[in-house]
């Protein structure tokens, strides 16, 4: 399988603290890979490195042959772990903004998606509930036709009912041509959509395998295994 993303022996420290210590993994085309670990395990640091937001790291990161930076980012649709769209924008302005900014953005698709979720396009983002704001952001990110989608904690703040909606949105827009790397510490809801799980602890990979294989070999769900592995951490 083609590799959309390859990471080899990535290390990153902040001062004396080693945030990521020798992490290697691939994201093959057509796959959904979960970067799973408690807060502070290095998930966001890895993602920021891929996005070219952190320099001064060790090891190799290749996104379709490019190193992190503007060239690579053109093919990555990124949902950061914090709000990334100016909240004084109306939803319709945010759509126009994305359309201006990204060549691969499908404005009609975003509009349809948001209308189906009953999100008013003429309202300012800051007047929407937090859950709705997350839906707006995810819809915009998933409306690009990128080769790699990186979703940092996509279900972090939403209630369980909205989680299902978000998972639906991810699945509806995932066409098998690209790949998704998503990070979360809420495993149960995400588990059915993952191909591969990577467990991170204190900047190191402690488990990296096919989700089906984990279930077959360990006889437990990813969520159960996660709780076991991180019993003393979370």
């Amino acid at each position: 399988m083609d590799k959309i993303l390859e990471i080899n022996n990535l290390t990153k420290s902040y001062g004396k603290t080693d945030a990521v210590r020798g992490v290697s993994f691939d994201v093959p085309k057509g796959s959904i890979v979960g970067l799973l670990g408690p807060n502070g395990s290095g998930k966001t640091t890895i993602i920021k490195t891929i996005m070219g937001l952190l320099s001064d790291y060790g090891g190799n990161v290749s996104i379709g042959g490019n190193t992190p930076g503007p060239l690579a980012n053109a093919n990555i649709s990124y949902l950061p772990d914090v709000a990334h769209i100016p909240t004084w924008f109306k939803v319709s302005q945010a759509i126009a903004f994305f359309a201006d900014f990204y060549e691969d953005f499908d404005a009609a698709r975003a509009e349809t998606m948001l209308t189906t979720m009953k999100i008013p396009l003429n309202k300012k983002i800051k007047t929407l509930s937090r859950g709705m704001q997350e839906k707006v952001q995810l819809s915009l990110v998933m409306s690009r036709r990128a080769s790699l989608y990186i979703l940092d904690e996509p279900i972090g703040a939403v209630d369980p009912a909205s989680r299902e909606f978000i998972i639906d949105t991810i699945l509806k827009n995932f066409d098998g041509e690209g790949a998704i790397l998503l990070s979360t510490h809420i495993i149960a809801d995400i588990e059915p959509i993952l191909d591969v799980a990577i467990f991170l602890r204190e900047g190191e990979i402690v488990l990296h395998d096919d989700v089906d294989k984990i279930r077959e070999e360990k006889g437990q769900s990813l969520d159960q295994l996660f709780r076991e592995v991180f019993k003393n951490v979370v």
């Binding site: 057509g30 796959s31 959904i32 299902e164 998972i167 639906d168 699945l171 509806k172 995932f174 098998g176 059915p192 959509i193 993952l194 191909d195 089906d212």
Partner: peptide
């Protein structure tokens, strides 16, 4: 595959398999 993936709420690759 796409419709079934949404119906079951699982990864399309799982349905494919």
């Amino acid at each position: 595959v796409r419709v079934m993936a949404l119906y079951y709420g699982v990864n399309p690759n799982t349905i494919q398999k």
